[in-house]
Design a protein around this nucleic acid. Sequence first.
DNA 1: CATGAATGAGCATTCATTCAT
DNA 2: CATGAATGAATGCTCATTCAT
Lengths: 198, 198, 198, 198
Amino acid sequence: MRLTGRERRQKILQAAKKLFASKGFKGTTTQKLAQEAGLSEAGLYKYFKNKQEIYEEILNQKIQDIDFYFPSGQQPKNNLKIELRECAIRFLQRNIQDTTFLKIILYSALEENDFLFSFLKEVRKKFFTPIKKSIKKGIENKKIKNFDEDILAKLFFSMIYYTLLLKTLFKDESFDAYKIEEIVDLIIEIFFKGVESE
Amino acid sequence: MRLTGRERRQKILQAAKKLFASKGFKGTTTQKLAQEAGLSEAGLYKYFKNKQEIYEEILNQKIQDIDFYFPSGQQPKNNLKIELRECAIRFLQRNIQDTTFLKIILYSALEENDFLFSFLKEVRKKFFTPIKKSIKKGIENKKIKNFDEDILAKLFFSMIYYTLLLKTLFKDESFDAYKIEEIVDLIIEIFFKGVESE
Amino acid sequence: MRLTGRERRQKILQAAKKLFASKGFKGTTTQKLAQEAGLSEAGLYKYFKNKQEIYEEILNQKIQDIDFYFPSGQQPKNNLKIELRECAIRFLQRNIQDTTFLKIILYSALEENDFLFSFLKEVRKKFFTPIKKSIKKGIENKKIKNFDEDILAKLFFSMIYYTLLLKTLFKDESFDAYKIEEIVDLIIEIFFKGVESE
Amino acid sequence: MRLTGRERRQKILQAAKKLFASKGFKGTTTQKLAQEAGLSEAGLYKYFKNKQEIYEEILNQKIQDIDFYFPSGQQPKNNLKIELRECAIRFLQRNIQDTTFLKIILYSALEENDFLFSFLKEVRKKFFTPIKKSIKKGIENKKIKNFDEDILAKLFFSMIYYTLLLKTLFKDESFDAYKIEEIVDLIIEIFFKGVESE
DNA sequence: CATGAATGAGCATTCATTCAT
DNA sequence: CATGAATGAATGCTCATTCAT
């Protein structure tokens, strides 16, 4: 099958996403990768310098997804709760539907892939900055408990993330009785009541 | 050093726990394993059929550790907050120090290990039952918001678990500025204020 | 850049000379070769059957260079020392600047290339004949020790050749402190004093 | 075939010497090496960390040969000429009989093997030091022309070395008419007359 | 009981070469 | 005429496992 470079490249990335998600980086051999992408092993190296580069390209593409979660320009304006609600819903919907990214991240963390850690730093900076800013404003307005906004932002996200883990990775069915929106509303409510300043 | 068969076996398992936890299953070679356990590679195969069997034996041992966190049958008596606080601190301390269990669970989940899922069901039942009971009592006393106690219990745990993930798996250093106790106290505070009935 | 077939061919050969000289035959990949010659790898095969053929063509060209050192038929006329001095300087300068020939000869000798040996016979005949004639005259004039002029000629050349080896192949820096002319003058002095008849 | 570790190690080194000498370092594949040594490729790596290490071991063993050329304790005492004569004869005899070392060095130099260059530095230091010292003494005694003793020592050796190259590598038969001793005597005579101070 | 010796299968990667367009 | 797409065959090296001693 003769494809253009662009098409082949995409096919390789697609195959890699699938395999990295199901087998991890180490568990994905170039042989399987080539097979899945429909070309020879040697062919892979015309498009990517090495296996690691394929992996990095996948992660780097995913960084752009963050903008998808915060679509209205990088910063929640008026209403933090509404922004966060929508962001969380979008995050859950997308990652429940396609668990590739979640799994790649976890596999890489387990394999202690060095690139992942620098990637995660970047992601956390981009992802949490808008939330942290809003929380900071809340703290300044004495609406939110005076505590490290970084920690608070991550604790908020923890409930979203664990929900995702339970639904996708751990096959816990107890959340299935509720719509995503209901869960998110509950989390938002608990978090904001919980961090209210007294 | 002349050891009995039983001792040798234990030494191998000990070495394996250490290595699997820090390097993962694939990252642990039989060479390093033998070296760490103080015998030849060939020797490993006198005690275990193969590498997989060593891994499984550790998994089984680790699973039994769960009782450590939740002394069997024990039920939070007087003060849920205090019970939960101690349980959470114990959970974090142990799993930060030895990440084997956390990693094994995640690896198994990623590999869609069927045994894991039924095991997890069991764990969740054991783990969450005492918390859920207390929450239920709180709901009945109108102290806690009237919502599915299963979900509430898991949302509480989510913050503990994500803290663990950030510290151990994702190499996020932002929690390192605080003692575990401080983080747990914050989580407890947020959660209980957050779920308070109005 | 649109080149004629002839030009392209020349460009490939030029690139190949450069690369073979600095990286050797095995160290020169068709990829680098194509890049250096400014065309695609596939393009190389329009002009040459394979890599070996490029190598052989260069070898042939280099062999013809020999005439440069020993303008054909030329015989040292008046002053052997001056002739030899200039020939040696030319030989060293050229081969230090472009080591292709030196390396090709050595590679071929190591590979016991039969063609090389008959070629070398020819070269030695051409190369040493003028020197030998002059030495013979010196012997007849009782100026030079009476010994096999073939051996004497080769011993003279040995110092020139080893100087070349040290400087180019063996990366010995001790000759770098001197100009080529100084070294050659020293060699000439030692040789002629050394072979003087008593 | 079941050999002891020591025997196998020796067999590998022997095979490597043979192959490196006839094919060069790059031209010697681990496959051929294993085959020649009578074990599997994987087996090689029980005895050596990698191909390079085998190569280095061979060279390092050869460094001891230098003591063989200067057997009477490291420094020529009374008579430099006699010492050098014997050293040169021993050098030629040994390397004519077994050209392995000569060829390995040349191949490595052509392949620009980094380890070779540091090895050569070591060798030159050890090999030329005694000769240089004697020459220096000669210079101080005004018996030898006042010139860089390093260069002089190397020019002496150049005639020995080129003789070796012609006889072994370049298949030049003109030296075959003479005994090694005769050639060496001639070289010694030419060199010492040539460098005599006036 | 213990291990040194040995390996088949597999790994990521490279390379010279071919061929459809 | 030129090349992008493609690969078979190799390369150095690793690993879990076996077996004779």
